[in-house]
Design a protein around this nucleic acid. Structure first.
Lengths: 196, 196
DNA sequence: TGTACATCAGTGAACGCGCGTTCACTGATGTAC
DNA sequence: TGTACATCAGTGAACGCGCGTTCACTGATGTAC
């Protein structure tokens, strides 16, 4: 019984610790969504999380550390989403889905000028992005779905297409062009279309 | 002769005024290139231009006004570049060229969350981007270069492709993937490739 | 069981800094007469 | 031609503010004995 009690206490402690750190990351996500990644501040994140302004520093060291932790979380989610993606369209839909479901992560990971070489796990995640796409294209070529053009070129083209579409959506550049209730089918049509 | 003198004086004045304003815009371009559009400040721009920190406020009203002026300049350059672009690839090369030659403008225009509705000239510029692409696609379709698929979908696809490629280049995501001296031919190959 | 100590997540005050904006001003240039 | 006034680009001091970071601390929990 004392063992059980200890375990429970231990578990609660770990949970609290995890929750607090996670709460800060969730707060950062909210702040980025609301104010944009340009106006991110440790104090705003702490305020949103309902903690003291020094809490983020305690957990992440400094501002860049918090951003890196957030990006690392993003790369993990990204890898999951891509792994579960449909090989038939070279994980294009998965890429778009990730960006739409995690716009804050997408922004910080790919478009914030984050120096991925300074933090372990980030460079691997960033580098893995293109690797995953190349592999997807190679699979599609093996299945005869894609032509025998250079795999790297096709992969870069596929990446450009989905990255651009994701960016345009996130930056609300399509708001005046596509109705909100048509956006899903339009996305599908764009990915499926076969230009000459 | 007094007329001539007056004219000269007048001309010099106008030139100085223009130069000063232009100098601030050039300084802003440098600052955005060096520190990123996220870390833009009026004082840094003024410092770079060698003027007092209050000069930008004098010319542009406030920070947002300076950004809007910079974006307006960008949309003008963009329209020029696109108009001179090759219809055969639906101005895709022109889009990429604009982004590579004016990365600071590209960033502020399309990716900074700028509210284009607040300043005259910006909404028109932003809206015209897609219009130009639709027209380019329609021309290509009329010439039989593009299939009879819905023009809007093909235009959105073409926009996604060039916007994504431009973004990946500007955000240095291709640095580990493509050699610097191969980038031009790779870009061409990506735009020319015909995936199934 | 209790007591003494160690750990460590989180706090709150304090710091120095760069920022955007305001505002009275200066001084060069243009205009009226 | 000269004189008096108007305009206006640009200045420099001053303001209040939010920021990142540091640091001694508190207090809850775990550990040793």
């Amino acid at each position: 019984m004392s063992d059980k009690c200890d375990n429970v206490k231990y578990h609660v402690t770990v949970t609290d610790k995890t929750d607090s750190r996670t709460a800060l990351l969730r707060a950062m996500e909210l702040v980025v969504l609301e104010k944009g990644s340009r106006n991110l501040s440790l104090r705003e994140v702490a305020r949103t999380a309902g903690m003291s302004h020094a809490a983020p520093g305690h957990h992440f060291g400094d501002k860049e550390g918090m951003i890196a932790a957030f990006a690392r979380e993003g790369f993990a989610r990204f890898a999951e989403t891509m792994a579960a993606g449909d090989p038939d369209n070279m994980r294009g839909s998965a890429y778009i889905r990730f960006a739409r479901e995690n716009p804050a992560h997408f922004d910080v990971m790919f478009r914030s000028g984050l120096d991925t070489s300074k933090y372990s796990g980030l460079a691997e995640g960033a580098h893995g992005t293109f690797g995953a796409l190349v592999q997807s294209v190679a699979e599609a070529q093996a299945a005869g779905i894609q032509p025998d053009a250079p795999t790297e070129i096709l992969a870069l083209r596929a990446w450009s297409l989905v990255h651009g579409l994701a960016s345009l959506i996130i930056d609300r550049q399509l708001d005046d062009v596509v109705d909100e209730d048509e956006i899903d089918e339009v996305i599908q049509a764009i990915l499926d279309s076969r230009p000459r």
